[in-house]
Amino acid sequence: MPYPEMMIKPMREEVTRLGVEELRSVADVDAALADANGTALVFVNSVCGCAAGMARPALAKALQHEVKPGRLYSVFAGQDLDATARARSYFGEYQPSSPSVALLKDGEVVAFVHRHQIEGRHPDQVAALLTQAFDSHCA
């Protein structure tokens, strides 16, 4: 069941102020991801404090890296249900989890950071996973 929007708004803004475009509808997702050319990051946001509370700062730190994906998007799991389900349809055989981060290149997932890789880790450690993927696939 979605949380009240007033509780979610700061979590959305913590991501969008990084220059990440939030996708709130199926149409938004298709418009963003149907064009498979280049690299695109999709951050699956979440209310979960224990994991998402690490994932958002990790994303912020990773996006300070010199090498970054060409396009940056987010969906909000548990809130924007249809948009999240649609975004996951672009993730192939990768299982849904939130928070998580998918890196796509030419329409294929080339790196994925799952929730279980975020739980209990410092944001710097999660950011390192992301920047390694950026260096490997976005340079």
Partner: peptide, 17 residues
């Protein structure tokens, strides 16, 4: 908002895979 936990009072493994 970072680090805010909506489910306080659970044990340390709560939410962990």
């Amino acid at each position: 908002m970072t680090g805010h936990v909506f489910h306080p009072g659970h044990d340390e493994l709560h939410g962990v895979t």
